[in-house]
Design a protein around this nucleic acid. Structure first.
Lengths: 154, 154
DNA sequence: TTAATAGGGTTGCGTTACGAAACCAAATTA
DNA sequence: TAATTTGGTTTCGTAACGCAACCCTATTAA
């Protein structure tokens, strides 16, 4: 049977995964954040098959994560650029990177650290915060019951 | 040919996606964060085929995102519980949820909001921050050149 | 004490997606 | 005019997905 889709799921995580939840899409977005814009560059930097890249770029454009721009310059006719929606995946990608660095450190070297362009300082770990900015763990949050507004035990 | 794997990739995002980058794994982790622990509960709440669930739970246990606990109580013999590594995916999941809520809002209702158990206030959007706590976008960060320590243009 | 039920899987099998290589076409460049 | 480059599409073998059916062990009900 067909692979399950989550387009109409009432879970926003599922809907998000429906757009960027496959093997390649997030990596393409990551490359785009590094500045990659052209088809061949994505292909070479990711080592992805062209038909798959084609498919993913198309879907990402359909989902408005990327936009396809026609640039009539010297052989490279199109560029794929991040939209605001795509750029908004920055915290997701950074959080995922930090998780990977922490729990599956690269065998051969130091983790890639991102730094603040202004100060040159490393960035903070991405965390969930309450309104005062304090870190929250899983047990520190709850989902309010829609009907009563009361706290419910998870 | 075999599906591409990223086990030994020097990119930590790729290594992270290798563990939780498929359609179901992150949703399983999400359910676990909601408190689900037993096989049948995962199955019913996610609507996932049993063999797929079996496979994913096994991989998540192999990757130490979940741990399988033998509980000899009244028919339910095993529980799958988050490890510290699994709990550390909290910011990733929350960031993904917020992205999904923002850009693909549920057709039928309000977004699920998480609240601070202590104050009852909604949580903040997950962002990337510099050492002072200020928000950073893609263009505000750079990857220092390993050899020189100099800033490089992205 | 046997039968029924529930939890947790495994097996088969058809459908779909993935991925490498080959092929294609428009636009440049040599 | 020929050779490249960019951006694709096609073909086809392999791997993964997903449903249904079956299986085994404990527990509960009759």
């Amino acid at each position: 049977m067909a692979r399950k889709r989550f387009d109409d799921s009432n879970c926003s995580v599922a809907r998000a995964l429906n757009e960027v939840g496959d093997w390649w899409s997030l990596l393409i977005v990551l490359q785009a954040m590094y500045g990659t814009r052209r088809f061949v560059d994505f292909q070479q930097q990711l080592g992805i098959a062209k038909n798959i890249l084609c498919d993913r770029l198309g879907k990402l454009v359909d989902n408005q994560v990327l936009k396809k721009v026609d640039v009539g310059e010297h052989g490279s006719r199109f560029e794929y650029r991040l939209t605001d929606k795509g750029r908004d995946l920055f915290p997701v990608v950074v959080a995922l990177r930090q998780w990977g660095d922490k729990w599956n450190p690269a065998p051969d070297g130091q983790p890639l650290d991102l730094r603040d362009r202004d100060t040159g300082q490393p960035i903070r770990p991405v965390i969930v915060q309450n309104t005062e900015g304090y870190a929250l763990g899983i047990r520190d949050v709850f989902v309010p019951d829609q009907s009563t507004g009361e706290e419910q035990t998870s």
